[in-house]
Design a protein around this nucleic acid. Structure first.
Length: 391
RNA sequence: CGGGGUAUAGUGAAACGGCUAUCACAAGUCCUUUGGGAGGAUUUAUUCUGAGUUCAAAUCUCAGUACCCCGACCA
């Protein structure tokens, strides 16, 4: 993709109505646009990142038997009256129509599964826009009023089967975090089950100062506890903890028969497993950035390489890389070198390739990996091979 | 939902209650530039909305709205 043609624009100065790092960088680098508090448009660069995260999540969900569907955002009042959750603050309601905008989907998935199958277990998920009337939208895309979430629901005929599957989901989540670069920063955290689950739930908390939660990480075993349920001793016996701010990127629950019973599915127990897609994107930016911009982990980056030409035509290199299906952002804009270099750092694609008069004299391009200071000259002939090894 | 703050061009800022509301960047056109945001010419406003005070309001007062921050909230 030629940067000249890309529907986006970088901004030099921070927007005055955003304080969070993720929002400032994503807006300045041209990934998202703000429409209102907690309401954002995703421009092509931002959508590419979203799609990358979604595909990682899909692959890992499918590996544990998940089947993808898409449920509606508009929800009839009747479904929510059954569970007594129609009159909660989170629900945006459509006046005079007995419809609300869904902030979760138990009320839809449970009758749907009842209607379409009697063969269990079943694992059904979707990646869909959720609406929540947040009393305080904040921190850019970390806490939006409209956001993308993956929600998986599992249906079992026995509690032990639910327990087994619950553990599988935990593993799948850590595979997702690993591929998104967040594994080292994300802790499985014991939390309350909330109003609709009697037992504990597990949260996946990514450590960052931008987070809204406080977790206590056991220095001995690594188990972490949400502040809301934290007591002074870990299960392993240790009393040494590290206190950290964190953002909840995922939350999994054993719902037992709470919803299945209400919707007339006898002897079925359920689990539900949420994962915030846009929230993860924000968390990635919060974790991976420097004073110049974003530093995308490979698998979620919008492009593999950022090719800059400085006063030297690099279109042949661009064509050759594209032929090998390497995703290239090609900057051949008529801008000063400084502007191109700064934009490149801001956007944060993992590998920067520069062709200039200086490098061309040596039949080379200059390679720099985002987040490092090392420069490397690579022969133009060997460039494709070099990049393929890096991916 | 409580507390605090802000609102001026696409973006970021300036302007004592008083002159034609300035400046930088971006965007468009023309020319010169190209290894860290280069230069010249030219174009860009209902000062958030409504009321009030005043000879005179971007500036003071009140109300509303939006946004930011702290707290409460948050499957």
């Amino acid at each position: 993709m030629k940067q000249r043609e890309l529907f986006t624009k970088t901004i030099k100065e921070n927007p005055k109505d955003e304080k969070s790092i993720n929002a400032q960088l994503l807006i300045r680098a041209g990934f998202i646009d703000k429409l209102g508090a907690g309401i954002y448009s995703y421009l092509p660069l931002g959508l590419m990142v979203i799609e990358n995260i979604k595909n990682i999540v899909r692959e890992e969900m499918n590996k544990i038997g998940g089947q993808e569907i898409l449920m509606p955002s508009l929800h009839p009042k009747e479904n929510w009256e059954i569970t007594g959750r129609w009159n909660v603050e989170e629900m945006y309601k459509i006046k005079d129509n007995n419809l609300g905008l869904g902030w979760t989907h138990e009320e839809i998935i449970t009758p749907l599964v009842k209607k379409y199958t009697s063969v269990f277990p079943k694992y059904i998920y979707q990646i869909q826009t959720k609406f929540r009337n947040e009393p305080r939208a904040k921190s850019g895309i970390l806490r939006g009023r409209e956001f993308l979430m993956k929600d998986l629901y599992s249906f079992h005929t026995s509690e032990s089967d639910l327990n087994d599957y619950y553990e599988k989901v935990k593993e799948a989540y850590f595979k997702i975090f690993k591929r998104c670069g967040l594994k080292e920063k994300t802790y499985l955290t014991l939390a309350s089950g909330g109003a609709f689950s009697s037992s504990f739930s597990h949260e996946f908390q990514t450590v960052t100062d931008a987070g809204e939660d406080i977790i206590y990480i056991c220095k001995n075993c690594g188990q972490s506890f949400n502040r809301e349920i934290f007591e002074s001793k870990c299960e392993c016996g240790s009393t040494e903890f590290e206190e950290k701010k964190s953002i909840e990127v995922g939350n999994i629950f054993k719902l037992q028969d709470k919803y299945s019973k209400l919707f007339g599915m006898d002897n079925i127990v359920m689990g539900c497993y949420g994962l915030g897609i846009t929230r993860m994107m924000g968390a990635i930016v919060e974790v991976f950035n420097d004073e110049k911009g974003i530093i995308w982990p490979k698998e979620v980056a919008p492009f593999d390489v950022h090719l800059l030409e400085l006063d030297t035509d690099a279109s042949e290199i661009y064509d050759n890389l594209q032929k090998e299906e390497i995703k290239v952002l090609y900057d051949n804009r008529e801008k000063s070198a400084g502007e191109k270099l700064n934009d490149c750092d801001l956007i944060g694609i993992p590998i920067r390739i520069i062709l200039s008069k200086k490098t061309l004299e040596k039949d080379c391009v200059e390679i720099k990996k985002r987040g490092t200071d090392e420069l490397e000259l690579v022969k133009i002939k060997k460039l494709t091979e070099f990049i393929q090894n890096e991916l």
